[in-house]
């Protein structure tokens, strides 16, 4: 197995994050560094990745595992290229999130929590993302897709497919 390594550029960014904290408090950089690792190393955190992050921050691997398992944004198993995280909390529910989730499930042929067999899409249900006034909504990567309708879901899926085809 090929060991993941951050690029020189990333290592500089990490040093910059560490420098925001007092000497000896480099552990404070853990959450941001795990975000970078997830972004750079395939969208999830393997044990090898977590051990690597521990060595970079000079902390114990267990300190990284503890954190990675606590926060819902870290994926501990592989995910699809595009991850749909649909909000299911009360305010989104009053605006029809349940039917949107059902529609995506049917359209992609997977249940929430699963990944399509071509490895393109993962569907997750998540709790409130602070977009209640623009419901129903989902997060995809770094952006929010709001005011979802079935048509909007169709076009997002199509965009993803086109994007994947171009980048292969």
């Amino acid at each position: 197995m090929v060991m993941n390594k951050f690029s020189e550029q990333r290592l500089k960014e990490i040093d910059n994050v560490i420098s925001r904290f007092p000497d000896g408090k480099q552990k404070s950089a853990l959450l941001p560094v795990l975000h970078m690792a997830q972004e750079d190393f395939g969208g999830w955190l393997s044990v090898e990745t977590m051990d690597y992050v521990a060595s970079l921050l000079n902390i114990l691997p267990i300190e990284v595992y503890e954190v990675a398992t606590f926060y819902s944004m870290y994926n501990l198993k592989p995910v699809g290229k595009y991850v749909f995280e649909v909000c299911q909390t009360g305010p989104c529910m009053t605006r029809g999130s349940e039917s949107i989730i059902q529609y995506i499930e049917e359209k992609l042929g997977i249940k929430a929590g699963e990944t399509t067999s071509d490895g393109l899409f993962t569907l997750k249900t998540v709790e409130c993302l602070a977009a209640c006034g623009y419901a129903p909504m989902m997060q995809m990567g770094k952006s929010y897709k709001e005011h979802l309708t079935k048509e909007k879901v169709d076009s997002i899926i199509e965009e993803c497919r086109n994007h994947a085809a171009k980048n292969n």
Partner: peptide, 20 residues
């Protein structure tokens, strides 16, 4: 990184220190 409880101020401080 996705945890409602980190809005509670002491949980927030723990999180800022790189912990659960």
């Amino acid at each position: 990184a996705g945890a409602y409880i980190c809005g509670e101020e002491t949980a927030l401080l723990e999180s800022l220190e790189g912990k659960r």
